[in-house]
Amino acid sequence: MAAVMRYRTAGYNGYSIEYSPFFENRIACASAANFGIVGNGRLWVLGLGAGPEGIDVEKVYDTQDGLFDCAWSEVHENQIVTSSGDGSIKLWDVTLPDFPVRNWSEHTREVFAVKWNLVKKDTFISGSWDQTIKLWNPEVPQSLTTWQEHTHCIYQTAWSPTSGDIFASASGDHTLKVWDVRQPRSVQTVRAHNAEILALDWNKYHPNTLVTGSVDHSVKVWDLRFPDREAMVLLGHDYAVRRVKCSPHSGNIIASASYDMTMRIWDTAMGGNRLAHVHDQHTEFVLGVDMSMFFEGQVATCAWDEQINVIQIPGLSMKH
């Protein structure tokens, strides 16, 4: 296995890590001091392939409260949106120092999810512990739409990779909901776990397939056409699953990050338990994971151990 590239987010615990959709060597990490319980947040913009351990800092931006998620703009190579513990959403221009170029303060509680629209690239959504989901346009000072239907914290949202109007949300109310931005109510509700759902992503190759991760330790694969039961259960994590990502390169590769301090790669085309790889070099909860769009098999993780690791998963890059 190739050497691990590392960076230490000193003083800040990683919550979310995202590859730039424009630059193959750029990643961003949303982090929070004091494990996100209290204190400041910091957005790190990092360059791969530089620095003593393979990753070097390009920019940092500090915020009053912890940052829990971030999403690169799909239309502007220099812009990235963050979501924060104080309910605020900020848009940053990484060519500028210190302060954001936009700030929205509509959510009344922690915002754990922010996701940029993959098709209609002028909008993004946010999901909050205030139980609402909001749709935003970076040029508009207020949210475009607000949906309130979940009965518990919203932990994650995900856009359909093929429709600019369809997205999904995962909540502490044990449900996964599918939404159409043109509809005032959700279009589908799936009781996906018997516990809080913390993680969600949309399969990039199968438009009916979503993946959830839960406090019940499991990762589940869902086919929305058969919502009465999961298509697959991936078991192996010893604690809650905090983030899942579907591979940009393959319809059967899933990455999951867990409180059990591991990041796991699953191959749903494999037999047995479908576990393809375990990254166990973090020493505390792993909260963020993302897969490179440009280098198949390259995966970045961030964790409460203040460590960012970028690794090459053995075997995954060989396919193309």
Partner: peptide
């Protein structure tokens, strides 16, 4: 804010849909 100079890059799934499903619009029941 800076001006954007780059066009969005194509996603891997936008260039190689797997099977017939890949091209169809999302179905929501």
């Amino acid at each position: 804010p800076s001006e954007s100079h780059l066009a969005p890059r194509r996603k891997p799934w936008e260039t190689k849909p797997e099977g017939a499903e890949g091209a169809s619009a999302v179905q929501t029941a």
